[in-house]
């Protein structure tokens, strides 16, 4: 079962810095070499250094879920992880979902069910749903509610997000 805000596993990280230090991040299957201060969060590295602005900065303190990305397949708040901690590990963001010009079924379901209003929390919601469906292709409504319970939506699109997640599960199971 996917749970929210899984912190990266405690790993030994070599002491780096002070000052900018070179790291490699593997984002959506692509390896990027960048130079960041050790205090750089994964969120800022994605947004500011790599220009991947689909991941949103809404609270920057691990309370809202708008910056949810997948780290080795688990959903994490990118604002609560240091870029250094994520070196060499698989990072998935919303930009990596659509392949060959085709939407991921979760994205298609969000559009079809109108599971968004302003869209600012949407990338985070979609990534949380992805983590859920990767582990559990046949979730119940309660599973969905729990999987996105760490993703706030101030537009109150929750009922439609539930529908979209269940619809996406259906699409994925039918292989479309």
């Amino acid at each position: 079962m996917a749970t929210k805000a899984v912190r990266p596993k405690k790993r030994k990280i070599a002491v780096r810095g002070p000052g900018k230090t070179p790291i490699k991040l593997i984002v959506n299957g692509e390896t990027h070499e960048l130079l960041v201060e050790p205090r750089r969060t994964l969120l800022d590295a994605l947004r500011k250094d790599l220009g991947l602005t689909g991941t949103k900065r809404a609270c920057d303190e691990g309370t809202c879920g708008a910056c949810t990305v997948l780290l080795d397949g688990k959903p994490i708040y990118a604002c609560m992880a240091l870029a250094l901690e994520c070196e060499g590990r698989s990072i998935e963001t919303v930009e990596g979902l659509a392949r060959n010009g085709k939407l991921h079924p979760i994205q298609a379901a969000f559009i079809e069910e109108d599971a968004l209003q302003c869209g600012f929390c949407t990338p985070g919601q979609i990534m949380s749903v992805k983590a859920l469906l990767d582990e559990n292709p046949n979730p119940t409504l309660e599973d969905v509610k729990r999987a996105v319970s760490g993703n706030l939506c101030r537009c109150g699109a929750y009922p439609k997000i539930f529908k979209a997640a269940l619809r996406a599960a259906e699409l994925l199971r039918s292989g479309s």
């Binding site: 602005t53 949103k56 919303v94 559009i111 968004l116 869209g119 600012f120 949407t122 979609i126």
Partner: peptide, 19 residues
């Protein structure tokens, strides 16, 4: 009908001011 700007918002392409 779906929103006309739903696709951009679901793919992370929409550029908000801070983007």
């Amino acid at each position: 009908l779906p929103k006309v700007d739903g696709l951009a918002k679901c793919t992370g392409q929409t550029k908000y001011a801070d983007d």
